[in-house]
Design a protein around this nucleic acid. Structure first.
Lengths: 153, 153
DNA sequence: TTGATTTACTTAGCTTTGCTAACTAACATA
DNA sequence: TATGTTAGTTAGCAAAGCTAAGTAAATCAA
């Protein structure tokens, strides 16, 4: 049962594919939030990333600043986020989640996560141990900076 | 170093988050394809899922049928897919990738995967072994059917 | 075997989300 | 002070999402 086919390329390919399918499946839980995918995703970054300037938010979502500006406006109209002027630099506007926004996001996240948790709970103890060992590795792969070699266009 | 915090809920939460960040990072490789995210994703399902009817494709992409119909039309105009009439049932149109479409997708996939493979290659042998053990578990979690309990709306 | 219903897809028309270009305001600097 | 840079908004267009309505083929009931 020991894996032999563990070349980086094969591993990368399978990991990539598994991640895609996993998220695609979990995304079905998101209808219940009443928010579109871009809005929900932006709200998530705002809630977990603390108050952020529009530019940082746009970068995190891999979207241009004007696009994010508009999404923020709609979230603001829904009462989910607030534009907070920055004291140091009056050009920047920090976006903070309201209590409503946080609650809405947490509920959705709970739905996603509990769907997954229910399945993880059905794994054997040993399988769960393997997963526990691997998750920090995934986190590491997920946050590597990859050299910022990507052009700004 | 043995993980103790491995309750299903915590594990699910971290796995979920890691998967999101991993894919978000890899998505940056996709600019080079010249295709938008929805088109690239649809093309991927077509290439790997074989010729598929529009409806199946829409379900896979979690999008309504008319939306997918239009995306397919644009991919068709770009010469990346073909509409193939079904012999058995003349209502259905199967979407097949052209050689050009396959080549374009494979190139993009190679970019993504090799970016990830480069990082996996930098892990220790033991870390890679852990990852190898966990990937089949991820695949399992990714493909579980979750009971089809979701409404059609 | 006709007639009604269902199914697969397209077309039409609207909203949202992506973009670039152009503008305003504030900061930084020469 | 003038000059340029940076953060954000506004405007306007294309792509991508949706529902509603239409067409054609398949299925099913009388």
């Amino acid at each position: 049962m020991a894996p032999r086919q563990d070349s980086p390329a094969v591993l990368a390919d399978r990991l990539h594919s598994a991640a895609i399918h996993l998220l695609r499946r979990l995304r079905r839980e998101d209808d219940a939030s009443g928010l579109s995918a871009p809005r929900l995703s932006a709200l998530s970054v705002i809630v977990f990333g603390g108050p952020l300037p529009i530019g940082a938010l746009a970068a995190a979502e891999q979207v241009r600043v004007p696009t994010m500006s508009r999404v923020v406006s709609s979230l603001e109209q829904d009462g989910l986020v607030r534009r907070v002027p920055d004291a140091d630099d009056k050009r920047v506007v920090r976006i903070a989640a309201t209590a409503t926004g946080k609650a809405l996001l947490q509920a959705g996240r709970a739905r996603r996560v509990s769907a997954l948790a229910a399945e993880i709970a059905q794994l054997t103890t040993e399988q769960r141990k393997h997963l526990s060992t691997a998750v920090p590795l995934l986190e590491q792969l997920a946050t590597l900076d990859s050299g910022e070699r990507h052009k700004r266009r």
